[in-house]
Design a protein around this nucleic acid. Structure first.
Lengths: 214, 214
DNA sequence: CCCGGTTGATAAGTTCTCTTATCAGAAGTG
DNA sequence: CACTTCTGATAAGAGAACTTATCAACCGGG
């Protein structure tokens, strides 16, 4: 799979060298000489990774991070600089860069870094249509949301304990809903009949504010 | 609001100095002399922020980040070190630290950093119960998910264009669902009758894989 | 061995969500 | 000015989701 790179580097010779080297490594490269140009390109076309020099005339690479994220939330961002300090590195990472590379750098190593950044940029959770249907339907019910909240709090629970914590009197009603959570892949039960959240369940429960009781 | 700090610093004198200074600034401080101790404490008690020395006997502060995140996903993490390099700073940030502070540091400035980290650690999106009900109910329907996908792709659309892109023939059916998305706070319409995603809508649509058509 | 608690399935009825048709006003175009 | 397209509300019916009661097997404790 060919990765598309958005390169912003004001040094003409270095810009050409990086473009050539990355093309040899199988990337598609779009070259800019300023962050402003890069943002213009990002409005026109989707990129996998932005490779931005820290210091350029006008907007810096770090200044461009927030705008790039707004345009393309999934884009990987790597900042390059010749004048690295701990403070500038930390600031870039805090502002959303995925990596920070100090010049001079080995071009083959750079290619490896770009591939790794791309691999790690997968959204934490993206649901295919059928799975999105299951998950959102499952969580449209208040009782089922309460189940996730209690499992987030208590980690592992037996059926009747979970039923009571969720505040449900009719255990067969509760059983029906618990089955639906299992079928949606948000909750699982081990061999000892203990219920717990799956990885998906843990991810989805983050969006539900903790219950205010207990 | 009193912030609770989990401090891991093997230098005894510095540990005491930091504890005293942060207590004077109104924090609650739990002191440990190793990352292992800090993880034990984190299993017992919830903290707002972990302040971890990078280099300690046994597990380093950076090694502890992933385990701490698992125990307390909302915790802020600040790494301190006397031997800062760009590489160690970038590595710590990549592994999930919220900030990176180089020794020696001003203790008042440290307190300010801790408060700022805590303020920025708010989860990106946590829905109170009533809002969670609205949002999950709204997204349990495939037509309404299609609306979010098209608005993510096209940014701004008029009613009938959106209706056609979503593949719906009956515009009054579509109108009914669009109203529900507006009422759920996921979609808005401007004065020119143009529909677009709200901040919540943009956040939720990330979880829905892009439609494979077009 | 009996009783109480736990775990679980399912059919039928109730409630809620969605679809559909009807109706209507506004705006743009020829 | 008339026609077409756009935008929108809503009532009634259809379909889906949820509740409820019945039934049953298993396990632990006395």
């Amino acid at each position: 799979m060919t990765l598309s790179i958005l390169l912003a580097e004001d040094d003409i010779e270095l810009n050409s060298a990086i473009e050539e080297a990355l093309q040899c490594e199988g990337f598609t490269v779009t070259c800019c000489h300023s962050a402003e140009q890069a943002l213009d390109e990002a409005e026109q076309q989707k990129f996998d990774i932005a490779l931005l020099d820290l210091v350029m005339p006008g907007m810096t690479g770090v200044d461009a991070i927030a705008a790039l994220r707004r345009l393309q939330p999934g884009i990987g961002i790597v900042i390059t600089t010749a004048f690295a300090t701990v403070d500038t590195a930390v600031d870039a990472m805090k502002r959303g860069a995925d990596d920070f590379v100090t010049k001079p750098f080995n071009l083959t190593t750079l290619a490896t870094t770009l591939r790794r950044v791309q691999a790690q940029r997968q959204p934490a959770l993206t649901l295919p249509e059928e799975e999105a249907n299951k998950v959102f339907s499952a969580l449209s019910n208040p009782m089922r949301r309460a189940v996730l909240q209690q499992l987030a709090l208590h980690k592992k629970l037996r059926f009747m304990d979970l039923c009571r914590l969720a505040g449900v009197d009719n255990h067969t009603q509760f059983n029906f809903h618990l089955r639906q959570l299992k079928q949606s892949g948000l909750v699982e039960q081990n061999a000892n009949k203990i219920y717990f959240l799956t990885t998906h369940g843990q991810q989805m429960v983050q969006f539900i504010a903790a219950s205010s009781d207990e």
